[in-house]
Design a protein around this nucleic acid. Structure first.
Lengths: 342, 342
DNA sequence: TACTGCGACGAAAACGTTTTCGTGTTGAAA
DNA sequence: TTTCAACACGAAAACGTTTTCGTCGCAGTA
């Protein structure tokens, strides 16, 4: 109900000037001890808090970073957020999360919104629609305007900014290699359509690992799921009567759908077919059988992204500009959806 | 690289005054057509976008609402966010998401941050630690300062603000009634500690439903889980050799832990024991057996919350102030973790 | 000619800060 | 007594907008 205390009101109340109040509160030696204490006591008593907006306008910086993610249901993204928050808070920054819902328009809108003063820079994982369109003008514009940008996970090559990614190829190879090691020889791949960079790269890793182990790549064993919504039916159809002993899925949802399909055919996981996923989420941990997965260390990705961004923010603009790409190692978490080594 | 176009720069460039530029861009009839077109063309060409911070400062409103949630891993909260975003965007508002990580301090920090100009109001679900402490001074302060506040899900009684909740008691009764209807007579409850309001209320519903059906409340059949981390072990211990034919768990994690424990004892779900959860998340849908749950309609909760908040924001302050509590109906989603009716 | 009215634009205040640069009052040194 | 620091404080600009209220010139009217 009280209309917020300002410097001006304090000044009026205590019959001093605004500048005196400001200086007193910031412990300037310019102000006499008596006045200073009086002002500070008053401010404390009435719980004065400086107006952030005014500060931002004055300083031309907001001490805030934005993170735009395509969807929030993926556990991976939530861990990234945690990582970003962690280091941002340590460095005195606040974090605003925005969702693009995988929509190009919403991504652009969010960026414009954040770029017009609300934040000092942002961290972004591209929306699926954006990658499909291949339209990155909004990124370039932001960069040109001097907004630092860090891309993570779903990135695109020729944009001049820092990037934090995992080695999808290596991760996929790790997964397929593990399947090979436990004896699988007929290994299927369930991936996403190719314009999602991770789908493409993980497919590449799958191929390479097959080759390295002397297996041949067989198109019949590869499914590229189009629609997330119908993925379950599509996967079930794909696996029907297929002679496989291992499945590598590029995310945990696909992996679970695969397990269900396999069980419905009367086969057992992992005895008859071993299944391995990507992204270590809640589902992977708690499903029965629990899933062997390639873990992405979302937390670390978030931390690195935030570190890169803040580093850039706090550098004097005269320093040389160059861009880094940080690759965060993947790990392999072995659980019960794959046979044990023989 | 270019230091952002401002009204002042446009004015200088075109040799008119700042006010003229501002008016021209807002299509004021005060400005002659020729000048107006010239200015608009220039602005468009150089992609002028007004500075949000300056606007916020001037208008004393940000057209932004904040939502603070305790944790992001619960699918329920993510659906609430979606709901909030949906109606907020429709009404021309932006949404900032902040996490309290269930920590009291972080909740207070987030609120102060958001209250100092960044947002016009917020939507909040209380952190566990806050409810445990019972310290709500930060809420009261915010309200006193004229920041509208909407609480959802984890609310507290005597705070003067709008609230959006589900009828936890009724939802719990629905669940237990369903167990009764399919023939269960020895029904266990797995709940949280009582200071989490939902735990308390759902326990109440459990009791009431037992009574209504002529069953007696038996403390031995009730577990209040203390630590989320060790919940699995705790639940397993609790169910050991316990003679039950139905389990009502107040969230999906507990429900799944219960199913695991039951299966480990060599019993079958749902043949020997029926299990029902609360909150309809990803896990419930995809677990095997899929979970029968009480669904909370997070999307609608988010929508209602945003609607309430914006309504309050756009009302002239002279109008009468009173507070609503909206109760969103729960639904029962019957899946495979409960027997079918006989 | 003198007044009125209007079209087209500019000056300035305001939002809440911080900060630079005064300015007036002391007390002490010369 | 004069001069000069030191001290304690205030005025004002600046950040980027919007908006109210001029002001100026000119055409139309009496």
């Amino acid at each position: 109900m009280k209309p917020k205390l300002t410097l001006k009101k304090i000044a009026k109340e205590l019959d001093v000037s605004i500048s005196t109040v400001s200086k007193a509160l910031r412990d300037s030696p310019e102000i006499g001890e008596e006045t200073r204490e009086k002002i500070k006591a008053f401010a404390k008593h009435y719980n004065y808090k400086p107006n952030n907006i005014a500060l931002s306008l004055k300083n031309r910086k907001t001490k805030t970073i934005g993170i735009i993610i395509p969807e929030i249901v993926h556990h991976f993204f939530t861990t990234v957020i945690s990582g970003v928050e962690k280091v941002a808070n340590e460095m005195g920054y606040n974090v605003f999360v925005c969702l693009s819902d995988n929509s190009f328009d919403k991504e652009v809108l969010n960026m414009e919104m954040l770029a017009n003063g609300s934040t000092d820079g942002f961290i972004l994982s591209l929306a699926k629609e954006t990658m499909q369109k291949g339209d990155y003008h909004h990124l370039i514009e932001a960069i040109n305007q001097g907004m630092p940008l860090v891309l993570f996970d779903r990135v695109v090559e020729n944009i001049a900014c820092d990037k934090v990614i995992i080695d999808d190829v290596a991760g996929a190879k790790k997964a397929v290699q593990h399947l090979y090691d436990i004896g699988c020889r007929k290994i299927a791949l369930i991936s996403t359509v190719d314009y999602v960079s991770v789908g493409k790269l993980r497919t590449k890793g799958y191929k390479e690992s097959l080759e390295e182990n002397g297996l041949v790549y067989n198109e019949d064993l590869v499914l590229k799921v189009e629609e997330m919504e119908d993925s379950e039916a599509e996967i079930s159809e794909f696996l029907k009567d297929k002679d496989v002993d291992g499945v590598f899925a590029v995310n945990e949802h696909f992996a679970i759908s695969a397990i269900k399909a396999i069980q419905e055919q009367g086969k057992k996981v992992p005895e008859d077919v071993s299944v391995i996923g990507f992204t270590d989420g809640e589902l992977s941990k708690r499903f029965i059988p629990s899933l062997t997965t390639v873990s992405q260390h979302g937390m670390r990705i978030g931390e690195e992204s935030a570190r890169l961004l803040i580093e850039k923010l706090e550098r004097t603009p005269t320093e040389e500009d160059y861009y880094k790409t940080i690759i965060v190692e993947t790990g392999l978490v072995v659980r019960n959806s794959t046979k044990s080594k023989k």
